[in-house]
Amino acid sequence: MLRNIAKKIYHSLPDTFYHQITYYRIFKKLPNLSRPLLFSEKILARNMKPKKIYTKLADKLQVREYIEGVIGEKYLINLYGTSEELTYAVYKNLPNAFVVKANHGSGFNEVVFDKTKTNYEDLYELTSSWLNCNFYKMTKEKHYDAIKPCLIFEELLLVGDSVPNDLKFHCFNKDGVIKVFIQVDYSRFGVHRRDIFDCDWNRTEIRLGLRNNPEPMLKPKMLEEMVSLATRIANQFSYVRVDFYEVGDKIYFGELTFTPGGGLCQMRPPTVQREWGSYFED
């Protein structure tokens, strides 16, 4: 009970105090918010004073319109529909395999490989918990506060019998020069591993929170096109992470992220924090 009270008090703190305490807990030092230099500090500053466009583009539904306008509709995952609640009528009309997401935060997604083996009541409880969650109050990433929650139902992308690896393009834009690092997340629903590549597909020594995969992913067939698409999107921002999937000979857009991990991801080697922080100015 005391732990719950402490947690409630902690999350009710003013944003600046909350972020300073949380940052200290992770990095064992206070962030420089008056003159941020490190990547984590600059992301933390965005959490508190985001640009208005971040709210629209962090919304996993609204961002589709933006992406269609910038790179084209053909890169969007097939959308089965949206809903403010997972009613049984909505559930019944979905295909046997699909992905359900909430639009207003991170981690709100569930893959349904076979609806005949899925319990509707359990899925209803899960999606209701997402919709009732204010992601801003969880993480204090302010641009999420104004997103109206809803559910999104999309086609399930598969490579063989598995979901494809996440290809996340960290795009830094300074003085018109765009620098790209590519994060690969393996086995999101198994033993989660992560690698960071440069734009020529050389695996770097950079570690973001997780261990490297024992075997690095082979160079994607559509890498050049994905880098081109990511830089077209990133041209409007000082820093953004652009997520794609490669399935066969097709590229699919995933999402845009402006504050990955809320700025709280441990990075190795330590010099990467200052290096990545030097690649953009907000």
Rank of each mutant, 00 (worst) to 15 (best):
C199K: 15
P269Q: 06
L264S: 04
M1P: 00
W130A: 02
K56V: 09
N4R: 15
N47L: 03
A230L: 05
V240S: 10
I206L: 07
K8A: 11
K74W: 04
Q62H: 08
I77W: 10
L158E: 09
A45H: 05
Y239V: 08
P214S: 07
P14W: 04
S129E: 11
S83Y: 06
E224R: 05
T82C: 10
K60L: 03
G254Q: 11
E121W: 05
D166M: 02
F172H: 11
N119C: 15
V100W: 06
K52N: 11
A234M: 02
R3W: 10
P14K: 10
L157C: 07
D166Q: 05
N32H: 15
Y144N: 02
D185I: 11
E224C: 00
Y23P: 09
D114L: 13
P214Q: 07
L33F: 13
D166L: 10
S228P: 03
S106V: 14
L151D: 08
I53K: 08
F189T: 12
F39G: 01
L151N: 08
N119V: 14
N103P: 06
K219D: 03
L61Y: 15
F135G: 01
F108I: 12
T116C: 00
S40V: 03
L210P: 00
R35P: 00
C199V: 06
I26K: 14
L264T: 09
T55D: 01
H11N: 14
A89R: 14
I26P: 00
D114N: 15
L156Q: 12
A97K: 14
E121V: 12
K52M: 05
E275S: 06
H19S: 07
G277W: 09
Y80P: 08
N47M: 12
I5H: 02
Y23Q: 05
Y24H: 14
G69K: 15
L229V: 05
G261F: 13
K42L: 12
D185S: 09
T271K: 14
L158S: 04
F27K: 10
R25A: 13
P50H: 09
R211V: 00
Y75A: 09
I152N: 03
K60C: 03
V63Q: 05
Q236F: 04
R46M: 08
Y66D: 04
D175S: 14
E85P: 00
N32Q: 14
V191F: 00
Q62T: 04
